[in-house]
Amino acid sequence: MIEVCGDAGDALRDLRDGATVLVGGFGEAGLPFGLLEGLLRCSARDLTVVSNNAGNGDSGLAAVLATGRVKKIICSYPRQVDSWVFDRLYREGRIELELVPQGNLAERIRAAGAGIGGFYTPTGVGTPLAAGKEVRNIAGRDYILELPIHGDVALIRADTADEAGNLTYRKTARNFGPIMATAAKITVAEVSRVVPAGAIDPESVVTPGIFVNRVVLASGPARSGPARSGSAHPGSREATR
């Protein structure tokens, strides 16, 4: 059985200083807003955040960065029209940036979850982002060595969870969720509804429950009706509307 937490603060109760936090989302699609609000209320400092972007506007990940409790961000695309919080911290030298090509970021996370010690990739060869990395020629082509990125905690946004922890996602909000869920010691999923075990067709499960520790219901309105597989099932808990 999955642990259904009453609120985001409870779901993040064991977050420690210096933790590495994997945060799902691409822009705002798949960003776990409720869990990030919970993160705002935590006292943990010196965090390393791993996420595709470095926050938009003043809410979500940007609000977490603005607290000054994130010492480093590992991401592929920090610069956006509304990334002013990150831009300011970066220019003031108050946050460290590790810029990673997006596919290497995804694969480093996937590798961590799959128990892989590193991999050789052609992405980045001959560019400044390969500086200091081992280069190996395999069958006539150059590759660079990239190492896994493990998280202490993964915060992801899914659509439906069942009580076994199985998850489905919605459209392009899936993005980093399934791989981040595999790569952290504790994975917390913010979901639109929790349904009884058996209410998600096993063929439709995207993230199997073994990768999920806790779920918390999103506070905003669900963006879709109940999942086809979980519709109107007795015992379902829905996000407030």
Partner: peptide, 21 residues
Amino acid sequence: WHTGDPDAIPAVGGAMDLAVG
């Protein structure tokens, strides 16, 4: 992906993956 300007904030996204792949 980057003008090399020291004040510019670099962002790469998926460009390097597309270039090689």
